[in-house]
Design a protein around this nucleic acid. Sequence first.
DNA 1: CAGGCATGCCTG
DNA 2: CAGGCATGCCTG
Lengths: 574, 574
Amino acid sequence: MSLQATRSSSISMTFTQNNVCSVTRTNSKTFFLGEQNLNWTNEPLPHTPNPVTEGTILQAPVVVNTINTNDRLLIMNENNEACVLTPTCNTTFNALDTAAGIHTLHGNNLPSFLIAGGGSRNDYTSDYMQDIKSKTTLIGPNMGAAIGNDMGAYNNEFFMSSNNNNTNCQRQYIGNTANNSVCGQPFTLQRSVAGQATAEENPHQTVINDVSNGSTVVGDDFAMEAMELLQGFNKSGNFLHFNEQSVLRHDIKGQKMLLPTLENHNNGGYDFKYVLEEPKKSQWTYSMLLNKLYISMNKTFNIDMEFKLQLPLEQLNLRAFLCFKTEVSSVVLRCANHLSADTAHPKLRESLLRCNNPATQYCGTSQGRGIGDRYSVLVPLSLDMYAMNQSDGVRQTLAFEFTCQNSCLGRKETSLVFCLENISGKILGQQVLDVKICACPRRDRNQDERNLTGFTQRILSLGKRVEAPSQNDKTAVDCSTPKRHCLSVNNKQEKRKPLNKNHMPAKWQVSCSPTGTYRLTFECPNKTVALQQINSLIDQAAGSIVRSGDNVHHHKHLNNLLVMKAFTERLNTC
Amino acid sequence: MSLQATRSSSISMTFTQNNVCSVTRTNSKTFFLGEQNLNWTNEPLPHTPNPVTEGTILQAPVVVNTINTNDRLLIMNENNEACVLTPTCNTTFNALDTAAGIHTLHGNNLPSFLIAGGGSRNDYTSDYMQDIKSKTTLIGPNMGAAIGNDMGAYNNEFFMSSNNNNTNCQRQYIGNTANNSVCGQPFTLQRSVAGQATAEENPHQTVINDVSNGSTVVGDDFAMEAMELLQGFNKSGNFLHFNEQSVLRHDIKGQKMLLPTLENHNNGGYDFKYVLEEPKKSQWTYSMLLNKLYISMNKTFNIDMEFKLQLPLEQLNLRAFLCFKTEVSSVVLRCANHLSADTAHPKLRESLLRCNNPATQYCGTSQGRGIGDRYSVLVPLSLDMYAMNQSDGVRQTLAFEFTCQNSCLGRKETSLVFCLENISGKILGQQVLDVKICACPRRDRNQDERNLTGFTQRILSLGKRVEAPSQNDKTAVDCSTPKRHCLSVNNKQEKRKPLNKNHMPAKWQVSCSPTGTYRLTFECPNKTVALQQINSLIDQAAGSIVRSGDNVHHHKHLNNLLVMKAFTERLNTC
DNA sequence: CAGGCATGCCTG
DNA sequence: CAGGCATGCCTG
Ligand SMILES: [Zn+2]
Ligand SMILES: [Zn+2]
């Protein structure tokens, strides 16, 4: 998320004793302020006075991430309408997947601000939250508020999920925000399929893809507003006032203390990227399709860090750390089993990620969540290397390994984040690589790739078992005989057309239904060719999906192709 | 194993400084004494002087169970020939499965004696043993010496397995014992299939079934000799002398310090047994066939302890503890993951077995292996209960639960041992219940019961999936040639399968002619997609020609594809 | 390393 | 709670 502020607006918040908070906003829209005192009954929560007046007390038993009573929680809905909550007790849970990302404002006794949006499945860690968790359950398809105890926003309204008997959990209304839009431009939360965060703009909407893997949301107006809210506060006594300077200051320093994101960026203009070259007989495997490394625990993989130098030359470091894809700011710790069996040096021992390069520094603590205080490895990039490389790119090989498996971590998906930093800790570039640490990397990769298109292992094995086809099946007949509303172009019909001196073989066929569906039939001289041809179809379809984003038709089609491939693989010449 | 000594023989061992040990035996046979100084090379170990003279130094880097330098290790072969080793360092490993069982002689500074026979797979726990383990590997089908670093006896000779490179592991000869039989009657080690220990006798041999689940071996002459060796020693200074009295004394006291066995017995004459009644809606299940309880972690099960009173009445306790079926005297500890997550009272926390009855005492330590010093729960049996029961039996219900799963324990099978004890710790009766602590008790029970009769899950699911194809199937129409030569796989066949999104649409088709030609039919949602897909086919075909050189088939095919593309371009929705 | 099983866990 | 998947681990 870019931190440049181009517009100004003004919000003031006053905190009195007892965490009473009032908010005023100097732009054209009034500001939403929620008030809740949840008691975990099934009764709908009372509506929030809207707009609330200054001094309304906010009580939020449900908060995002680590929250103290000094913290303020800001949730936003798809209209960028905001709700600020003040927690009534210190607590912790991991809620990483929010539409707006989670941001912490650092400074002298400043309350932290966090933005919750999409909501996600949460892992409650405190006893308090455990208790709440036991009282809550899934409330819907992750639209706004989500599993367990979460807050979210949907359809112009804010919701809080809660349940005290784990059965009739419902989405609880905690206030509507009509006419309280913080931001002039509404945006729409969308969930991307492959977990890629992209931002599209159209004249009327800034589309924000709500990504379940915790990527920071990038959006034009929204991002601006969020950053203003988060970073524009400047404490003077109990009075926080927005000003543009604080944003800029924040921009420059303390990036390391920000919670991690899973975006790739090259803010520093270094064209930073990694190059992962899979050796012939490697102990790991890489899926291009998923941008994901599959590797066994305690196996080393080499990865090249490549970037273009900027002048003036400065010492650069490579920081690498692990995140959960869906709980980006959660700590990623080794399991007790592997930890207790490891006799390595304590600092090394606690790190799930190891770098075998000399001069590697192990940073962070078990509680650290920010980039600078979570467990990470920091490798000084050799200055000698700068000149040693081909063309204008600088390249250095690093060797990493992992000391736990994803199965140790509750089977949660992980990403490995590489940050190119200067010595003051400014992040010049960031590149993310998804990682699965498992016992059978190749198997799991194949499985994942199949699942990408819904082509499960199950269907494959089903296909395997098809031993004799039901041959009184009339499907073929139906299709080979063109129907009335079906235009069919086959060899015979085309004979009159001197289109090409070549014509298709008798059994090749192209037809088209009124709905626009095109039907193609062709033959291949043998199985190998057939499979190669199908593979090319799959490649093209997959590439098309990757390039043009989500499309149900494309996915279905790709899926069908994969099934066709499986069937073809199993079909042998009589 | 009965401890009554009916024959006498005499062995004397002298220990001088530095663990030098000499042995003489007053029966007709001379005694074998091995000498080793293993250094983990691949070279065969030097033969042991045979018979050794007094004062020979024994150095055994491989020992059975917990061994201190004060301990003496006695291994025996199938001719009941014995070898005594003195370890040169304190160490620990779990080697439970021995032909002769493992026995510890307790007393004032008495060295422990352990008998190793069959050898088995060992779990090395000390750093020292870890090191050794990394240097060793399987050396054969568990005849005498076994996996890893073990000693055993086979074919009248003693062997020690060792390997320093994990490859060419070989059984190392550590001495032959011809003419050194300790026991007049030879016996043969046999491995029983189901892990049941049985003893057969024939006129010439005492057959001892070497059981891989650690059951104590029962054998006539051998047992006698073993007990003589183990329990007949009586310390006077550094001189141990066998006498019958010490056996009897040992018989009466200190049973609790013996390593556990998995035998059922009622030595005290109390007709002690347990009664496990499975409630209708129980959270556990019991397999009568396998005498095995299947239960989830942290779920309580009730079990009745029943016995007949003996006069004079005395306070009785019920002791319960877990053992590994195949490593009976190993410690059974909670895994680090569950242990570290448990906030219960330390004593309770470490115990994998919990008893919910009031007044339960938690005994033992994490190192303890004997009945009295391993982790166990001890429940005083209420005297009030004695009269309260029907008929002549006394019955008391106990509630137990487990705090780890078998999967936590390396998936090793476990048995729960119930001992009826008097207050001096004399074991009056013992009953064993196999237990599997798992997430899906019912499933696993069914699986185990099926496996018992060789009717595996696989067969079952295969049987399920076999869907008899219609014999009068007809070829797909598009497959012009004789029907029976043509295999066609399409959607219709799959319709029966409960899979929805994962089979091909009705009009998709793959078929194959006897000539090996593959015919593919598929649809695209619109013309654009159709053309893109055809282009990919063309690209692949062209690439294939470029790569693999000229091929008439390929050229024809490519040409056809180009025609198909042209047709498709001209074909519009009606 | 592939095939297959064992077994925790998720989902309906 | 059954069905099914995910995933470590064993075996050939
Ligand atoms: Zn681990
Ligand atoms: Zn456990």
